[in-house]
Amino acid sequence: MAATLEKVKCACSTCECMVSPDKAIEKDGKYYCGEACANGHADGSHGCGHPGCTCGG
């Protein structure tokens, strides 16, 4: 029987997105939904590119 991975919340504290660990960006043992979140919105960006999400690190 194959294991099923459930979605987890993006590790970005202000992001509301859920992401499958096998499709996430892993950084420092945490799972992120995209590069902007994984990089802590270092460029000052708001949002992660997913519709309706306005996270901003």
Score class of each variant (00 low, 15 high):
D43N: 12
N39K: 13
G44E: 04
G29M: 06
C15D: 02
H50M: 11
V19G: 02
E16C: 08
S45E: 08
K23D: 15
H41S: 05
G29E: 08
G52A: 04
A3F: 09
P51H: 04
A38N: 04
C33N: 01
H46A: 10
C15I: 01
K7D: 10
K9D: 11
A11E: 00
K30R: 13
P51G: 03
G40H: 07
G56I: 01
G57I: 02
T54H: 12
T14A: 07
K9R: 15
A38I: 01
C12N: 11
V19P: 01
G47C: 01
G52S: 03
K7T: 12
L5F: 13
H50R: 13
C10L: 02
L5W: 08
C33F: 04
A42H: 08
M1Q: 13
C37A: 06
Y32L: 01
Y31H: 08
C10S: 02
E16H: 13
G29A: 12
Y32Q: 02
A36K: 10
T4L: 10
G34N: 09
G57L: 02
K23M: 09
G56F: 01
G44V: 02
I25N: 03
T4P: 05
K27P: 00
C12S: 09
T14L: 06
A36S: 14
C17D: 12
A38E: 04
I25T: 09
V8Q: 01
K23P: 03
A3R: 10
S20N: 15
S13L: 11
V8T: 07
C55R: 00
A24I: 02
A42D: 12
T54I: 12
D22A: 09
G44S: 05
H41A: 03
E6Q: 14
D43L: 09
A2T: 13
H41C: 06
C37V: 04
K30Q: 11
C48I: 04
D43E: 12
K9Q: 13
G52M: 03
C12R: 01
T4C: 09
N39G: 08
A42T: 14
Y32P: 03
P21R: 06
D43F: 06
E6F: 14
C37Q: 02
A3S: 13
L5C: 11
D22E: 13
